[in-house]
Simulated scan of single mutants.
Amino acid sequence: MPFSCYVDGAVAPCSHGAGGLVIRDAMGIVCYVHGFYYAGLLDSFIFELMAFRDAIRWCSLKGLTEVMFYGEAKVVIEKIQRRDARDVKGGRILVELENLQRQYQGFGISFVGRSNNQMAHDVVRKTLSLLLASVESFDFER
């Protein structure tokens, strides 16, 4: 795969959350760093699902057609890989993810440990710290 996208999502104690992505090219050089802000939810499982959904959407908008997505939320990744949209919690988002995966055949999703996902985790922490309730997403400077 020409690109690797490291994804993370998290929830803050005061009813908001964030997702983040770090994209590296085939040489391992960081190409993009992007954060997503989510308001009004308190569930880390849902934030992780939303982070993957939004990362796939964002990559497709940028014209990236062959991307391997990595994340550290093993339970979430297993649900996505099993295409288990029957799950009541997150079912709609799982259906969206399944449709996106069908639409973009060059995308794959796999588990990676926290130590290999630290940059995405840091993007999420930075996004949470900004508390930009009026902003849904933004790019970080490299």
Rank of each mutant, 00 (worst) to 15 (best):
G63Y: 10
C31L: 10
K79M: 11
L42K: 14
R53P: 04
H34E: 02
D54T: 01
R86P: 00
S137H: 15
V22L: 03
E48W: 06
C59Q: 06
S110E: 12
D25K: 14
R53G: 04
R83P: 02
D43T: 05
L128H: 07
F111C: 13
H34A: 01
W58Y: 14
K126R: 11
R82G: 02
A120L: 08
N99K: 10
F45N: 10
V76H: 07
E72Q: 12
H16F: 14
E136H: 09
Q103T: 13
K62G: 05
V135G: 04
A85M: 09
G40F: 05
I23M: 04
F52N: 00
E72S: 14
C59N: 06
R53T: 04
V124T: 12
Y104W: 11
V75E: 14
N116C: 04
L132R: 14
W58N: 05
Y38M: 08
R86S: 11
Y37K: 06
S115T: 06
A26P: 08
L49I: 02
C59K: 09
T127K: 01
K62D: 06
S134N: 06
L130C: 09
E136D: 10
S60W: 10
E96I: 02
T65R: 14
D87W: 13
D54F: 02
V95K: 14
L132K: 13
Y104Q: 05
L49E: 01
F45S: 02
M50A: 12
D87I: 10
F36V: 03
F36Y: 13
V76F: 05
G108I: 02
D87T: 13
G90C: 07
K126N: 06
L61I: 06
I23N: 00
S44Y: 06
K126D: 03
M68R: 15
F107V: 01
S134L: 00
I46L: 10
R102I: 07
L21T: 00
L128E: 03
L128T: 01
L97D: 06
K74P: 01
G71D: 00
I23S: 01
E72H: 13
F140R: 04
K62Q: 15
Q103P: 02
Q103V: 04
M68W: 12
Q105K: 11
E78D: 15
V112C: 14
V95R: 15
G28E: 09
E78R: 15
I23Q: 01
I80C: 04
A55F: 03
Q103F: 06
H121S: 06
A85H: 12
L61C: 09
K79P: 02
G108S: 15
L61S: 11
T127D: 00
I23H: 00
N117A: 08
V76L: 07
V22G: 03
M68D: 14
R102Q: 10
G113R: 15
A26T: 13
F69E: 05
R102Y: 09
V33S: 00
F45H: 12
